[in-house]
């Protein structure tokens, strides 16, 4: 007993052998190297884009329409407004449906029933479907829909069609983050409310949803920041570039990623620099949105 004890003690007290220390150091360097790959790439991207794009960034850049003919005087007004409008419309569509779905799955669905389990699994699956597939879906069912949605004219690549397509794309994400936020509201809050004679609906509406709101808001913002960065689905539903008019709900539209994509495809070098400037604007928007999400999360975090 005493012998084994002292043996154990000695083993702990002994310094690690030099071989072990080298291994330890090597491991740390390797991990740091992996991290650097990501950081360096981001740094190179930002520096490279800034060098090309910054000279073009001026106030005028924001409120001038893009032009293929006079690239020196080209701006991004229609694309920027298109992206902002897409974001708002997408949110209007996706937040009520996503949150309501999450409430159903968390608060009402009986998890022992196969139908609910099937729905759950498939929402996870939908979240990982490539965005181009959603683009095809949007083209087939929304743009060339069998029914004339809202009487806007079948076959028209409209802003609304784009927003709905992006909405479908991020809906599973919104459902998943909302469910997590709802699940984070402790059951004791629900019990406390129900024990006072509140109905389940009152409990959800007045206790659970307010408690879940910061998490839902954070998730929705992150989902929207994914939506406005998407290019492929918008190409498929017919977003245009170099548009000389502002988007309207029932008319053609452009968006920043589409503008970038088309700029890069132009033969003259100046379009590459315009693309870089547009990338900076898009990155700026994404940065603002992600910062807002982090701020909301920290500011309204519930300490249960």
């Amino acid at each position: 007993m005493a012998v084994t004890e002292s043996a154990i003690t000695r083993k702990i007290v002994e310094r690690a052998s030099s071989g072990e220390r080298v291994r330890e150091l090597g491991f740390r360097v390797a991990l740091l190297g992996c991290l650097l790959v990501a950081i360096v790439f981001l740094g190179v991207l930002i520096v490279d884009v800034s060098v090309d794009g910054l000279p073009f960034l001026s106030l005028e850049f924001f409120y001038t329409f893009p032009s293929r003919i006079f690239p020196e005087e080209s701006g991004i007004q229609s694309a920027l407004l298109g992206t902002l409008a897409l974001m708002v419309l997408c949110a209007v569509f996706v937040v009520p449906i996503g949150v309501a779905s999450a409430v159903y799955l968390e608060e009402y669905a009986d998890r022992d029933r196969w139908i609910n389990r099937t729905i759950e699994v498939n929402i996870q699956n939908l979240a990982s479907v490539p965005s181009v597939v959603y683009g095809i879906l949007g083209l087939a069912f929304i743009v060339r829909g069998p029914v004339d949605i809202f009487g806007l004219g079948v076959g028209q690549p409209t802003l609304l069609a784009g927003a709905l397509t992006l909405g479908l794309l991020v809906l599973p994400i919104v459902i998943i983050v909302s469910r997590e936020a709802i699940r984070a509201v402790p059951p004791s809050i629900r019990e406390g409310s129900l024990a006072l004679g509140a109905t389940q609906w009152q409990t959800i509406w007045k206790q659970v949803l307010p408690g879940a709101l910061p998490g839902v808001a954070t998730g929705v913002i992150l989902a929207l920041s994914r939506a406005i960065g998407e290019t492929a689905p918008l190409i498929l539903v017919g977003a245009g570039a170099f548009q000389l008019f502002n988007p309207s709900i029932d008319g053609p539209f452009s968006a920043l990623p589409i503008q970038i994509f088309n700029n890069v495809g132009e033969p003259e070098d100046i379009f590459r620099d315009l693309a870089a400037a547009t990338i900076l604007v898009l990155l700026g928007i994404l940065l603002i949105m992600n910062s807002l999400a982090i701020y909301l999360r920290n500011r309204y975090e519930n300490k249960w």
């Binding site: 402790p186 004791s188 809050i189 019990e191 406390g192 409310s193 129900l194 024990a195 006072l196 004679g197 509140a198 109905t199 206790q207 307010p210 408690g211 519930n302 249960w304």
Partner: peptide, 19 residues
């Protein structure tokens, strides 16, 4: 059951004030 809980209140093991 909602009517029942109006008449018969409950206090739980861990204090659970609303936030």
């Amino acid at each position: 059951p909602v009517q029942v809980r109006k008449r018969i209140g409950m206090v739980f093991q861990k204090p659970n004030p609303f936030p």
